[in-house]
Simulated scan of single mutants.
Amino acid sequence: MTRRNPLREIGYHVTASTISLLWLLPIILVVVTAFRSFDDVARNGVGSLPRSFTFDGFAQAWTDGGAARALVNSMLVTVPTVVITLALASVSAFALSRYDIPFRRTVLLLMLAGNLLPPQILLVPVAKLSEVLGLYDSLVALVVVQVGFGLGFYTFVLHGFMRAIPAEIQQAAVIDGAGAGQLFLRIILPLTRPALAALSALAFTWVFNDLLWAITVLRSEDRMPVTPALLGLQGQFVSMWNVIAAGSVIAAIPTVAVFLRFQKHFVAGLALGAVK
């Protein structure tokens, strides 16, 4: 066994602790500010030690700031987007990975190439297309856009997982009389559960926190998801940092809850992908 160098070990822990503290410092500042009163923040400054503890900022952000309505809008967009996108991606990945489809590699590369385009150059075409289709300024338009731009990446990831499943499993199921639907639902899909869980957590976070496409296809304030609503909150309560911080904390709760719920599967999916 090699002998450990105490100085190197101490230096490693000091460096890691410093980096972790620097990363957590803004989050701690936001959370602490959210529980402070407006008078405390205005009198002593945002960076001062807290001298009060109150939930007034959360109540004001929830009611006057429209955080409740924004959270509902975000969930109405995020949940259908994640379900529809992963359902379509799993079907397309199954077909591209388990069957000899002509030009399947070209199709996969084209789907992936769509995600390499800078979204800024597509803002005007997407907005015009949503107007032509009569979907502009509706949550349906935002769901369609999110599904369209996420489908290629999720298909590419699931394709890698499904392609690594041994062909003998599929052959045994076919010999037993399983059709394509049974093979997909009962064999392939359960084996890709870690990948689906990992992608669900990532997709939920990406869609829930999206700002660009929301302000592109939406105009009415009562239809805005939580991230654009935070911009409006900063304009409405420009000097009330406790309300803005409380709105940020409220907006972060769903994504944190989803990640904690799928943490086990998320780590398993990443580890499985690393082994492959």
Rank of each mutant, 00 (worst) to 15 (best):
I27Y: 11
L29E: 05
L29A: 12
V30C: 07
V30N: 02
V30F: 07
V31R: 03
V32S: 06
V32W: 01
A34F: 03
F35A: 11
R36E: 01
R36V: 04
D39H: 13
D40I: 06
D40E: 08
V46S: 06
S48Q: 04
S48G: 02
L49R: 12
R51Q: 15
F53V: 07
F53N: 00
F55Q: 09
F55A: 15
G57T: 01
G57F: 02
A59S: 15
A59K: 11
Q60S: 09
W62C: 13
D64Q: 14
D64I: 11
G65T: 12
G65L: 13
G65A: 09
G66Y: 10
R69Q: 10
R69W: 00
A70Y: 03
A70N: 03
L71F: 05
L71H: 00
V72G: 13
M75E: 01
M75I: 11
V77R: 00
T78D: 12
T78Y: 11
T78S: 14
P80M: 07
P80D: 07
V82M: 04
V82G: 04
V82W: 03
V83Q: 09
I84S: 06
I84A: 13
T85K: 01
L86P: 03
L86F: 06
L88C: 15
S90Q: 05
V91S: 12
S92N: 08
F94E: 07
A95Q: 08
A95H: 02
L96I: 05
S97H: 04
S97A: 15
S97N: 09
R98H: 13
Y99S: 03
I101A: 11
I101P: 09
P102D: 10
F103A: 15
F103G: 10
R104Q: 12
T106F: 14
V107S: 13
L108W: 03
M111Y: 04
L112M: 13
L116S: 13
L116W: 01
P118G: 09
P118T: 05
P118W: 10
P119T: 14
P119D: 14
Q120L: 14
Q120E: 14
L123G: 01
V124C: 10
V124I: 15
V124Y: 06
K128P: 05
E131T: 00
V132Q: 09
L133P: 01
L135D: 03
Y136L: 08
Y136A: 08
